[in-house]
Design a protein around this nucleic acid. Structure first.
Lengths: 208, 208
DNA sequence: GCGGAGACATACCGACCAGTATGTATCATG
DNA sequence: CATGATACATACTGGTCGGTATGTCTCCGC
């Protein structure tokens, strides 16, 4: 074909690889499927990536990472009312996204479960994404505590990790049951419990 | 070797297969590893199982399923105070089990994430295990409602699914961070939230 | 306008591994 | 004690798939 547009070619490979990895997992993804999907040849692929593992790393770094962070981080970057923001982002994400995430789960979680025990390179990359995610939630909780919209006795780090765990667990359950309504029900329970993070009676200065 | 003890041979194959699948996932598990682990030969393996997939199914049915259910079901088979039982079973499981589950996650969750999207036979089996698990929790919650140890307005099915999701999410997070303390912290938050399932003021007849 | 490097394309290889073919030892049964 | 069936053991195969060797085309610097 001779496309002669290296950046675009590389990006297309990454996206196709993500598409396949998301659906079938990394190990079950064949290079052939990626090539067929992009029209790119094997020579081009190996020109841009040293091997399949490096391609996987690049997908994590350049696709999964922004995919996760932009979805969450932006939603409560500057909020002082993290509880409301949390509930909003959860329902927003659940509504906005197509059947994908219901059927295939959360990309971060999928890869973590599959690859953390198999390849250390994957593990550290996926862990750092999770830590960033956690940090953004914990920061928001701390700001909420300063502003009085979150109880002072909650542990921001532990709570943030719990929220991530519940979210990922929900995605896993939905993937297993293949049912959006069940996922919504789980999030409903989580939403109610999250309300418990607010102080019993609003303190002066609370945004809520 | 000629062991001539088919039941035991079969069981040993299943356990070795579980061992490998638990650590590396189903797809990454090679038959060779199982053979080496058991001392059984390929002929014996294929005498007991039609192919690798059938072996995987048998592992799910005969190892993973009892492994999960006996760990949970027994703990609150007849309890009327599911909240206390839940907190107890969670800490009990976390304490009792070796580094395995911290490092490798929950077998049910691992297989679900890896195989649900790849093979329908795995999906339905894993889903049915989760449904049984869910049912046992939901039943306990309902008994708690009858006895007044659980708020009447909680949805037993949705709450049970939420608890499972959180638990599985915790296991996933622990697997990623490879840190038992973090897992305990997540369970601590969950434990507090679970307390919120109790009625605000005890009703007559409550066991708590 | 030419040389070299980057950006592909094509054909091929070799290893791994699930699966099979075939052989043999043991046991139950009549 | 002959016979069939069960329970293995061993050697081999066939296909898939990640990886490579090699060639070609294009663009850019000089």
């Amino acid at each position: 074909m001779v496309r002669r547009d290296p950046d675009r070619t590389r990006q297309e490979i990454l996206e196709a690889a993500f598409h396949e990895m998301y659906r079938h997992g990394f190990q079950a993804t064949g290079l052939e499927a990626i090539l067929e999907r992009t029209g790119v040849t094997k020579g081009a692929l190996y020109h841009h990536f040293r091997n399949k593992t490096e391609l996987g790393y690049a997908v994590v770094d350049e696709i999964v990472r922004p995919w996760m962070l932009e979805r969450w981080r932006a939603h409560f970057e500057d909020t002082t009312d993290p509880v409301t923001a949390l509930k909003r982002v959860m329902t927003a994400i659940l509504d906005e996204m197509p059947e994908d995430v219901i059927l295939f789960g959360c990309p971060l979680n999928n890869l973590t479960q599959e690859m953390s025990g198999v390849d250390e390179g994957f593990r550290v990359r996926l862990e750092s994404i999770m830590e960033e995610w956690r940090g953004s939630i914990a920061d928001a909780l701390r700001r909420g505590q300063v502003q009085g919209s979150v109880r002072a006795d909650v542990d921001p780090e532990a709570t943030a990790l719990f929220l991530i765990a519940s979210w990922e667990g929900m995605a896993g359950v939905a993937k297993s049951l293949q049912d959006r309504a069940q996922a919504a029900a789980v999030l409903g329970v989580l939403g109610e419990l999250v309300e418990g993070l607010r102080p019993a009676r609003p303190v002066a200065g609370a945004t809520a």
